[in-house]
Write a protein that binds this DNA or RNA. Structure first.
Length: 135
DNA sequence: GCAGTATTGTATA
DNA sequence: TATACAATACTGC
């Protein structure tokens, strides 16, 4: 399932448990998402870009295959309030990880938008090395 | 195991 | 402001 957004098309994959991954459709591979859940996710994403929805907390995510550290991190980042930001260090201290581990886990995050990594920043308040900046 | 990493804090110029 | 270095935990091969 491809979801058109102002940032370009997003590639969506779902499983019976929930969203398996949602990324910019740069390298589309794997089976296309189908069913009610896929449609629901598409509407949610479009509602997000329409300003009607700040988060995707009601959408089920499939964490199967992810390590506990990543699972906890994603769950925690999803709870970041709208309009607020958290630093890598703060997340690391809360989860008992190192700031670098937070960055590494966030870099491998397959849930673009669903896990608002753009709200995770440096301790100084600067934007982190988000993928959307370059390349 | 080893190298890479979306960090942080301290030191130095 | 910019660079250099050490500590730290997880991902990916």
């Amino acid at each position: 399932m491809c979801i058109p957004t102002p940032l370009g098309p997003l590639w969506l994959e779902v499983s019976p448990l929930g969203v398996r991954r949602l990324e910019p459709a740069l390298y589309p591979r794997g089976p296309e998402a189908e069913g009610a859940l896929a449609l629901r996710v598409r509407e949610a994403v479009q509602a997000y870009f329409a300003g009607e929805r700040p988060d995707f907390l009601d959408l089920p995510l499939d964490y199967t295959g992810l390590s506990p550290a990543r699972l906890r991190l994603y769950e925690r980042v999803r709870l970041v309030p709208y309009g607020r930001t958290v630093s890598y260090g703060a997340l690391g201290r809360e989860l008992g990880l190192s700031p670098r581990a937070v960055g590494a886990a966030l870099r491998a995050c397959p849930f673009f938008l669903l896990v608002p990594a753009h709200r995770v920043i440096h301790a100084d308040g600067r934007l982190g090395g988000f993928r959307g900046r370059r390349g």
